[in-house]
Nucleic acid binder design. Structure first.
Lengths: 192, 192, 192, 192
DNA sequence: GATGAATGAGTCTTCATTCAT
DNA sequence: AATGAATGAAGACTCATTCAT
């Protein structure tokens, strides 16, 4: 009979407003007053749900990161061969970045600017363990190069951020064919 | 009628202070007052050298980007074979990111957060044309995959940002051997 | 869900402080910080009650002008003869200028320096219509000269500003006798 | 063989620039830097010609007031009858206000806002003595009402400020006929 | 004399946060 | 829980004036 008086809806509304504002104008253009207005409540109410602004940002980061990770492993079946498994995850991530533009944008901003506490960032990384495990399996099966997961990530996953960013900014449109080409490039980089 | 002239030293001092502050705490934690203090002058003096804060940031971006580009094409000889040419540029960029940590860090922050005016960003991109030309040559000589420069960049150059970032944050140290491994991965991704 | 409400007292306190400062030292010597201090609140609080400094000044002008107009037509009875009616209004205005020195001073400063938005000024003028109507009646009854209201105002009302100003600055003291003399001069100027 | 190294031209240029700026936007929008720019010299140079900003404004006031007074008594002949003498001066003043709009505007702003030191203001008033003397003569000759010069001024001269101001702001255009009507009103107010 | 650079003090305004209800 | 008012500290930027040549 736990009393949940704080409404999840309000919390979500706040997180959402924050993400939108940070995305559009940057962290320094997302004051608490604007966040409150966009979420249709008083600035004072924010402090019922979050300790302060940094806490709000941190929690937003964790939430988005979690949602990203969940998406990344959708339909992921550890039983299939390494390439198929990797392909599934890779396309999941690509689709996330293409379709959940707001979330992807926000994550890439947080990952490159010092706005999230390092401790929180580390916490957000844990979810990717299954991918690291997959790479380990690939190495054991001599399908993948014997390189560290950092290199794996840098050359096969990280480039997606650049591509979707370019897509978003109308530099280079992404379509179905191009995304398959991109996957092959990614695979070529890490396969033995 | 000799008079005190604007000193390049002061200008440079301001740009430098700005970069350091933006790097360490983010754009929103680099107020003009702190920049002035770090550059050892009055806040008012900044406005002799720059129109306003945005102008200061923009000019800093252009300057660092120019310095990066100059570095990228050091010892670049268009006569050598495609792979050698690419290798030269790739290692130049890698060395820049490893040794000029401040500059590299700053650029990656600017490229991922909405703090630089889009027009300025476009201006900063022009310098990379020789690399695009090289890729074109490689495609013609059927040494490189027939893919757009966006893909080329995403998979062969962009990953360096992740690697050096990880290095910087003590996640994954980079040494001479590892950097050569990384180059091979990069090359594998774009070569035919 | 009772909450603290904007208090009319604070608003009035701000308007009052502004008037006093502008009167004593001029518009350029009435910074928001001093206004706040005089009204005994934080500078930030001003912005809860007014959009910005110009808005504060504009609203003060309108308020004082309205109070002036209300005073001008006190005990004004349209039924009495033209001279009596005019006399009533004229003395009302004279008394306002003599007794409400602060208000009168402020208005005359605003009317001669470009500190109030023209649109606001026009709005503040509307209240004087009954006086214009009275002059029209006087002209029809062939009691007043057939001249425009601008001339009427310039020669019968506007001089009061000079007189009270001189009085205020100890140049020429105003007493009961003198004010009656002045009225006769005013009346001579506009009567047929 | 006095050395006049300071150039009168520069001084005049400064005074002129100041008047224009104060007129257009008010005292608070006439910073020394803008004055210097408009007068095409360095801000530092201003301090060779004037002690500080207040001194600059004060001297400008005195100069304009002197020019106004000189204009007021152009062709003034003490020998003619009181009405003719007064008429000459009155029209001189009217013409000044209509034609030297900048100067007139500036004076009326200074006379109504506390920007000129009181002492300086008193100094600027001395020049009008001949008019006061004329009024005295008129009183002795029983042509004018036995009232103080303050009242005389308030009702016969001061109204011109309102009229020309209205003219300037397109409220009530002044033409040759209207100005003669106005003179008659002025005369009616002070004549016995 | 003349000047562009330099600046401390100050301008208006905004912000993250707390208060009082 | 919820909130509009309130605020001290800080933000970017400007100003009258002085410095150094």
């Amino acid at each position: 009979m736990a009393i949940r008086q704080k409404s999840d809806k309000k919390r979500a509304s706040l997180l959402n407003a924050t993400m939108k504002l940070v995305n559009n104008q940057g962290f320094h253009a997302a004051p608490m007053s604007k966040i409150a207005k966009m979420a249709e409540m008083s600035p004072a109410t924010i402090y019922i749900y979050f300790e302060n602004k940094q806490d709000l940002i941190n929690q937003l980061y964790l939430e988005v990161k979690a949602s990203f990770s969940a998406f990344a492993f959708k339909n992921y079946n550890e039983e299939t061969c390494v390439k198929e498994s990797f392909k599934q995850i890779w396309f999941n991530i690509a689709n996330f970045k293409i379709n959940q533009v707001e979330e992807a944008n926000f994550l890439s901003q947080c990952d490159n600017a010092p706005i999230i506490d390092e401790e929180i960032k580390r916490e957000g990384l844990k979810h990717l363990q299954p991918l690291v495990d997959l790479w380990e399996r690939g190495k054991n099966e001599q399908i993948l190069k014997p390189i560290s997961p950092y290199l794996m990530y840098a050359f096969s996953i990280y480039p997606l951020a650049f591509l979707t960013n370019s897509h978003y900014k109308k530099g280079c449109e992404i379509n179905d064919e191009r995304i398959h080409v991109a996957f092959n490039v990614a695979w070529d980089s890490i396969k033995l």
